[in-house]
């Protein structure tokens, strides 16, 4: 185990201000072994700046509240160890930049919650004839990766599509929402249709797969490779691929298959009998 044994003083620059402006303020506080950036921020709060605004909850990388930028890198403060920095190295902590500052390290992340409201919900297919639901590990594993998301919104913070281009917020929902949409689209039981919405309303085409979302994800979700690119491929099939389009036309017109299996026919499938009540 590598631990520093002697307490040392750390200096940290914390961005302080609000929607009208602000600046970095430097603080010096004693540091203990094993400390993370959030511990130092808390110590600054307790001893120097009681009104220093910061969001946090679990302090164990599970809730995704304490997102900030440490030396310009989007990070969870609770998972950024102080011993990552060389003694004497300057440490600057600032709020995430994709969202408007409320105060100090706290920003207005309502963008994400508004976008979430526009996602068509999960709509399961009917149960098995015995009233049970069966899913298999190989099918749930792919989606479980997306369910690891702790909604820290660091991917939204780093995504240049909205970070650097405020206008795009209207037509682009950001990596977090694509992870969510991928989870629903690839859910083995789901029957809802979202592909056209993903292209037109959530703006998947704005993503130029530069993979910064994947780089900053504290949950190691392969956002670009496993969520966004497979969604792009599904959009291609539904919207851009001429061969897929032609095949759909032929199948629809063909006399061999008068009732093509599709998401719509699934919706109207006969309900299965209710499970015997316990």
């Amino acid at each position: 185990m590598t631990t520093e044994t002697v307490a040392r003083e750390v200096r940290m620059k914390v961005w302080r201000g609000d929607a009208t402006g602000g600046e970095f303020v430097e603080f010096a506080v004693p540091s203990d072994p094993g400390m993370v950036v959030l511990d130092v921020v808390h110590r600054i709060q307790a001893t120097h700046a009681p009104d220093l605004a910061v969001r946090w909850n679990c302090k164990a990388g599970k809730c995704g509240s304490c997102s900030a930028e440490v030396n310009g890198h989007p990070k969870l403060m609770c998972m950024t160890r102080m011993n990552e920095f060389a003694p004497g190295e300057e440490i600057a902590v600032s709020p995430v930049k994709s969202f408007p500052v409320i105060k100090d390290l706290v920003t207005d992340v309502s963008f994400n919650y508004e976008k979430a409201k526009t996602v068509p919900p999960f709509k399961p297919k009917p149960k098995d004839p015995d009233g049970k639901r069966r899913m298999y590990q190989e099918d749930v594993e792919r989606v479980q990766e997306f369910h690891k998301c702790i909604e820290c919104f660091l991917c939204q913070d780093v995504c240049h599509v909205i970070r650097d281009h405020e206008d795009n917020k209207r037509s682009f929902s950001g990596p977090r929402m694509f992870v969510r949409l991928a989870a629903l689209e690839m859910h083995p039981l789901d029957t809802n249709e979202r592909i056209d919405l993903i292209r037109a309303q959530h703006g998947l085409g704005y993503c130029n797969i530069t993979k910064c979302c994947t780089e900053v994800c504290p949950e190691d979700i392969h956002i670009t490779d496993n969520a966004i690119i497979p969604l792009k491929e599904r959009v291609v099939t539904a919207h851009y691929d001429p061969l897929a389009w032609a095949l759909r036309r032929i199948r629809r017109a063909g006399p061999a298959s008068p009732a093509p299996p599709g998401p719509q026919s699934k919706e109207f499938a006969a309900p299965t009998p209710k499970p015997p009540s316990a």
Partner: peptide, 25 residues
């Protein structure tokens, strides 16, 4: 004890993905 199973299965109706047995349960 009586109602917990129904509440868990209800989560599955709303999209939760629990780890599975070999039989898919």
């Amino acid at each position: 004890a009586q109602e917990a199973p129904d509440r868990v299965l209800e989560l599955e109706e709303w999209g939760a993905l629990f780890d599975r047995t070999n039989d898919g349960l």
